[in-house]
Amino acid sequence: MTSFLSVEQLTQRYPDGDGGELTVFENASFGVEKGEFVVILGHSGCGKSTIMNILAGLSEATEGVVIMDGAELSGPSLDRGVVFQNYSLLPWLSTLKNVTFAVAARYPDWSREQVIAHSKKHLEMVGLNSDVFNRKPSQLSGGMRQRVSIARAFSISPKLLLLDEPFGALDALTRGTIQDELLKVWAGTEQTVFMITHDIDEAILLADRILLMTNGPYARVAESVDITIPRPRSRTEIVDHPNYYAIRNHLVQFLGIRSKEMAGKTDNADNRPQTVHIDELSRSATNRSKIAI
C-alpha cells in the first residue's frame, strides 16, 4: 500500500430501527496520492458523506481502516482540514477571527501579528478584501461565506483537505466563480484534496480523478475515472477538449444506469475500483482493468 491516503475495506452499518442492520457501504477501498485532487460522485444514500466524516475523524467506520501518511487515522486532527457544505463559520466571530482562531490552533507558537498576517493573506487569496474582514458571517453572501471557509481550510495547510459538497448551497453563477478561485488557490499548493459533489461538470473541472460509487445499500467505489484534460483548466475551454464529452458521457451513463445495475452485495473480496482511462486524443477509449493503486 503505497498511496498517501489509503482506505481499506471500509464498511459502515447502522441499526435500521427494526432491530436489523443497514449496510450503507461495504468493503470500500481506494487510494489517494499526494497532491492529487480526487472527487467522489454518487447518488444520495451511497454513504459519501459518511466516508467524508470518517476521513475527517468525526465518525468511526464499523469495519476497516484509513491510513494516511503511514499512520492509521483516529479522531479529528489539524492534519485534515474540512470545508462543510453549510460553511460552518462561527457566527459570533468576524470573518478574520474565523480564520485566525484556526491559524492560532495550527501554529500555537506564532505571534499575534504573524497569525493575523497569515490569515489575511489567505482571505485575500480567495478574493476577499479588507472591508469584509470585520464583518460577521451573517453579513456576508453565501459565496463569500464559503470563501472564508475555504480560506480557513487552506490557511492551516492540512495534509488532506476534505470538501463536503462545498458549493452545494450556492447558485450556479457564484459556484462558477468560487470553483475558479478554488482552482487558483489549489494550483499554488501541493494540497491533496478529497471532495464530494453532485455536480458532474464541477467534478470534471476540478478533479484529477473521479471515484464513482454504486447505489446503497452495500455501496462500493466501483470505478476510478482519470480526467485526461490538461491543467490549467478553465470552464469555458475544457468543453472544447475532445475528452470532455467522452468523460462526461461515461459519468452520466454510470450515474444513470450502471450505478443501479452494479448496486448490491458482491462476493468479490477485492473491491478496488476499476480504472477507466478515456483519451480520445490517442483514439483509444480503453477500459483498462487495472487495479487503481
Partner: peptide, 27 residues
C-alpha cells in the same frame, strides 16, 4: 453539531471548546 465539529477538526481542547465555541453559541 457543526460548530462542535469545527472545534473538533481544529483540535481545540475541552476547555477551549467550552469557552470559544459552546459558551458564545449558548450565550
Amino acid at each position: 453539531d457543526d460548530w462542535v465539529n469545527v472545534a473538533r477538526t481544529h483540535e481545540l481542547g475541552a476547555l477551549r471548546t467550552a469557552f470559544m465555541v459552546i459558551l458564545p453559541a449558548a450565550a
